[in-house]
Design a protein around this nucleic acid. Structure first.
Lengths: 214, 214
DNA sequence: TAGATTGTTAATCGATTAACAATC
DNA sequence: TAGATTGTTAATCGATTAACAATC
């Protein structure tokens, strides 16, 4: 539907707009100008207007933006009105934590199954759902119309599992494994590399220390 | 020490270089050219050379880069030779998962303590370390030279806790709470907003679907 | 020395910011 | 209508890529 290609820089900012607009709405705020939002979010008003205009004119000259309307529009753009079924591959600490996270459900992401190759974990429950063995994965995806897989296994097995997922019709992978997945372009991959994030933090701690030395 | 200001775009790429160089080293590769690394990592050779040159000349004309040397240099730049002591605030699923993650230790990040306000969780153990009550946090930070705090609590309490952390000398916050922390510039904050990441994935699934409709 | 490949400058590209005409 | 604020074009800034001289 949307005409022009939207840059990922813009896409990355949408969830943050969504969060602020949700909070404003909950506070009963009905309208907001790009300038007010700018002060609140610490980004330029210009960027806010540019970003929203990528998706059409949501505001009104002389008035600003209707908070509720803009909130709903961003939800729609992000696809939060659709329902997604996800499974988790890897029932270690992180997999179990993500399975237990209730907030995803509010946004239309439904936790449907969890798998692990460790027989000791198979049968244990995560939010009432029993961990299944890896052999069950393929048929489960097809039977339950799973479109998202969350990968929380060690990097050694991740590439092979990702390929199995893709073969069985998964559309997107939320990848917590510390490895790059090279998959067909129509498969969406979103990486969360926690140790990379921690290293960035480490770099910035150091940089700050050195600045003070000068 | 370093002269020019390095952009965060460059810093974000360092952990990925570090990962690839570590793998090459483990495979016994001794030297690599920017062109070979470019093919491997799917970034331009030009960018690789520019990135490394921000920190000084690590290569040699006609030869390329020594893998082991470059690996060690990036470790040093990222501050991975230093030891950091971290605590986790919030002993829910995610906090416990991060506390149990052993790989952080290999990079010099040592898990020293975990706190929660829920009396039912206090005293339960995460990797052998008992969860402490929130009242104990301030003194613990000072007594154990803690420099990093991992924030895995609901957003409602996060801002107040962050301020307490800063008051007691924390240098950096790894923030998993779904809220923006506005802290003094000398405090480093690295945000991991999991639901934002999931929304991005959702957007990209949708976009892909629409492209096919055209 | 000749070949290879870096370090670095210059060119290009894309994203952000500024400015202002359109319009509610 | 006058004031406010968007939508959008133009200017700027920064990041990426290309090119090539330096040099191992």
């Amino acid at each position: 539907m949307e005409e022009k290609e939207i840059s990922q820089a813009v896409v990355s900012r949408l969830p943050r707009y969504f969060r602020y607009l949700g909070e404003l709405r909950d506070q009963g705020v009905e309208r907001i100008s790009s300038q007010e939002l700018s002060r609140l979010m610490k980004v330029t008003a210009s960027q806010i207007r540019q970003d929203f205009n990528n998706f059409g004119g949501f505001g009104q000259q002389g008035y600003g933006y209707n908070v509720e309307f803009l909130y709903q529009e961003i939800a729609r753009i992000l696809g939060l009105n659709d329902t997604h079924h996800f499974i988790i591959i890897g029932a270690g600490n992180l997999g179990r934590a993500l399975g237990g996270y209730l907030n995803f459900e509010k946004r239309g992401f439904l936790f449907k199954g969890i798998f692990d190759q460790n027989p000791d974990l198979v049968g244990t429950r995560v939010r009432g759902i029993p961990v299944m063995p890896m052999e069950r994965m393929e048929s489960f995806i097809r039977e339950n119309e799973i479109d998202i897989a969350v990968l929380t296994i060690p990097k050694a097995g991740a590439v092979a599992v990702a390929e199995r997922l893709v073969k069985n019709g998964i559309k997107a992978i939320w990848n917590f494994a510390h490895v790059d997945l090279n998959l067909p372009a129509n498969i969406q991959v979103e990486n969360v590399h926690l140790s990379d994030s921690l290293m960035k933090l480490s770099y910035n701690i150091n940089r700050n220390k050195e600045e003070k030395d000068c």
